[in-house]
Every structure is written in structure tokens, then in C-alpha cells.
Simulated assay, not measured.
Amino acid sequence: MYVMRRIVMKMIKINNTLLFITSVALVLLTSYLIVKVEPETFKGFLDGLWWVLTTVTTVGYGDLSPETLGGRSIAVFLYIFGIGLIGVVIGKVVDAFASFRKKREEGNIVYKGRGHYIIIGWSKKAYYAIQELTQSIPGAEIVIVDELEKAPMLEEHIHYVKGNPTTKETLKRANLDRASAVLIFADETIQDSKLIDGKTLLIATAVESEASHIHTVVEVMEEEHIKNFRHVKVDEFIFSYETISSLAVRSAQTKGIAQVYEQLLRKNHGDDLYQISRRKEWKTYEDAFHALLQEGATLIADGNNLSINRKLKKEIPVDAKLFVICDRDTYKRIK
């Protein structure tokens, strides 16, 4: 037992690649030898391979077994060395999966995908943003960046990178340069809105300095701080306090309007807001408006310009960002 324990301990310390190669070589070699030694029992290489695998994995169906001294010698060799070697390999595979899961939970990973969405700053708003993303874009890859001890969410398409989002190393581990977009949420643990926006600004500055070409959306507490964010060339802003207050007042003045906003913001039911590409045959906004209307969609904006109905005769610029209201099936047809 002492000798076996020493052998197993030495196997554990062997390089993983060498251990794998050795295991494959052992299986293939003994499969070949058993066929050569007992051709009457083992008709071909596949029979030998089947017997070796059932032996070293201790399954032992008993449908094939060696009968000669040479064949049984090979079996004894497999009992002593093969089972131990394969057992170590299986153990290392299990450990590798456990280690990978632990790294995922602790955020000690390097995300290597592309076209993903990075969400910086965990909060309830970030949670709902992920829910909306997964509903709007099935299969979307999402990377959460925060300094939490454990991943707040972990699913097949949701990953966690632990670290300070103002540092280059953390953003690099999230593969910022190949992301589709970055959403930066305000830190709800800070009470002072000025300090909240200050931290958000530091993160936005780090993101823009590393990957200015990536579309960045930032949650801002106070509108007066927008000029600072524009200075670092943030693409879009979400006003947390102002948006909620404005929606509450509009709902009080015009009953039911909150439901209209909710439907346009959520893509899991009813008509929604979608961006479409300009078609070659559309020369003016009027051309696009009437063509889309026939297909069941309503053209409402070009970028942030909502005055489409007042400029129907004007030509559509090449870089136009057209937005329509329609249901998902209509969008799929006109996309």
C-alpha cells in the first residue's frame, strides 16, 4: 500500500499534458497488446479497446476477459498501474471543472468572447437591465464588472469579472475592446449624488480612454453633471431621478401614459421601439413613412429628432438612424 500511495502521489504531480498523453498511450498500447496476445478472445482492436476501458474505469462488464497467462499478465498490469493512472486523470478533470466554477463565482476569469454587453456596477437596476437584455436579445453574452466577493448572477451567458472598473487590467479582463456596448450604473451604496456621479465619471473616463469606439451608456444622478460626461465623450445618458419624477408627473397629468412608456421600454409584449436601416429606394422621409406604414410600422424619429411629420419632404441623410414603432413580427419582416 505504501508503494502504491507513493506511485499515486508522483502521478498527481505529473504535468497535466504529459499525464494525458501517457494515459492515452497506455490505453492504446494495452489494447493492441491484448489483441496480439489473445486473438481468439479479442477479435479486433475495438474489442481490445473496449476491454481496456472497462477495466481501467473499474466498470468490468465481464463480457470479455483474458484466458492465457500473457493476457492475464496484461490485466494485472492494468490493475496495478492503469486503474491508478486513469483514476488520477479523472480526478484532475473533476478538479479542473470545480476550479473553473470557483473562478467563475469569484470573478477570477478573463472573458475572451466578442460582441458582448458589459454591465459595470451591480444593483437592482443592473439586474433588471440583464433581464431586459436576455429577453430582447436571446443568447446575448453579458459580463458583469464589480468588486463583490461572489458573482451576483451566474448563468450560461452571464459572466462575472471581479475588480476595480477604473483600472485597465479589469477592463481588459472583461475584453472591453471587443464589447458591443457598456452600461455603467450608479453606485447605490453612496448617499451623496455628487459623489455617486464622481465615481461614475471615473469609470466612464477609464472606459473611454481604453475603448472610445465602444458605445457607452451611463446612469447620471444630476443633470448638471452632464457636461463633465460629455467632456469624456460618453455616448448616451440615463437620468435616474429626473426620469422617474418626470414620468410620475406625466402620469398624474395624463392618466395611462406610464403604461405607454412601459410598453415602449419593454420588448416582451405589444408594440416596441426599434431601429431600422435606410433603404435605397427611400429618398425622403415621406417615402420611408408611407412605405413603413403599409408594412405595419410607424416611423417616429431620426436619431433624437422626433419632428418627422414636419420634414416629410426633406431627404434622408445617408447616416440616418431611423426609429419605428411596431410589433416584433413586423420588425423581423422589415429588418
Rank of each mutant, 00 (worst) to 15 (best):
H290R: 12
L265R: 08
G296P: 05
E222R: 09
K283Y: 14
I130V: 06
N309L: 13
I86D: 10
S209T: 07
F45W: 12
L322C: 11
D302A: 08
R101H: 13
E222M: 10
L306S: 07
E105P: 00
G198M: 01
N108D: 13
E149W: 00
I21E: 03
I109C: 06
E155R: 14
L69E: 02
R266K: 11
E210Y: 13
K125T: 04
D47C: 11
R328Y: 15
F20G: 13
G139L: 13
T166M: 04
D197N: 04
L28S: 15
I74K: 02
Y285R: 14
A129V: 02
R173V: 02
I184F: 04
I137F: 13
S251F: 00
T284A: 08
D95E: 15
F229L: 03
E242T: 13
T200P: 02
V59C: 04
F97G: 04
A204Y: 00
K199G: 01
N175E: 11
I119T: 00
I316V: 06
I137R: 07
V35S: 02
L53S: 12
I130G: 01
E210K: 12
S180Y: 14
H116Q: 04
L49F: 15
L29H: 04
I144A: 00
S212W: 07
V59I: 11
D235S: 10
L247D: 08
K10P: 06
Q253D: 12
K10C: 12
S193G: 00
L69W: 08
V35T: 13
A25D: 05
I214K: 03
V324P: 07
D95H: 13
L154K: 01
T166Q: 05
A301Y: 10
E147W: 06
R72I: 06
I120S: 01
R114Y: 07
Y241M: 04
K335S: 14
D187L: 02
K13W: 03
G296Y: 06
L299W: 08
F42V: 06
I21D: 02
